[in-house]
């Protein structure tokens, strides 16, 4: 799909900042508004913009649907995995206090590590899910046209 050059150039200009902003929202969620959900959605929005401008095939060379399908489950597995690791380390499910060695009554470092990993899992799953759903909707149209 060859788009209007203005649309193409503007997209080239904004897609990298959108991806960067997604990462900022992801890892700055502890300090400001944001977190895994929003970051995942913003990341997916950049990919969807790329799909709209360059077409499904060229985007799928970068973000393969099968890999996305893998990431859909990977995020949830990271989340549950953190919980299970907490159980193996002697705490309760998703009790981040036991993740690192405790230095006081409340283990802030363990909590930070837990939250970072959990939010990462959320972000990966949300981004992959949104991209996957968009791929599914788009590919139907392509198939319909081919027939």
């Amino acid at each position: 799909m060859k788009m209007n050059p203005i649309v193409r150039e503007v997209s080239n200009l904004v897609i990298p900042p959108i991806l960067l902003f997604a990462l900022y929202v992801q890892f700055h969620g502890d300090f400001g508004p944001g977190g895994g959900f929003q970051a995942g959605v913003i990341f997916a929005a950049a990919i969807i913009l790329h799909t709209l401008v360059y077409g499904l095939e060229s985007t799928q060379k970068l973000f393969n649907p099968m890999v996305m399908r893998f990431f859909v489950s990977l995020g949830l597995l990271i989340y549950i995995g953190v919980g299970v690791v907490c159980m193996f380390k002697g705490g309760l499910f998703l009790d981040y206090n036991v993740l690192t060695e405790s230095h006081g009554a409340h283990n802030v470092h363990g909590q930070e590590l837990g939250i970072l990993l959990v939010e990462l899992g959320v972000g990966i799953t949300v981004a992959a899910v949104m991209i996957t759903i968009f791929y599914s909707l788009c590919s139907r149209r392509v198939r319909g046209k081919a027939e």
Binding site: V129, T132, S136, S139
Partner: peptide, 18 residues
């Protein structure tokens, strides 16, 4: 959300434009 993606994939396919 995971379930939503699985449902869409089951109904509409994985989404290849191959």
């Amino acid at each position: 959300i995971f379930t939503a993606a699985v449902s869409v994939m089951l109904l509409l396919g994985v989404g290849f434009a191959t």
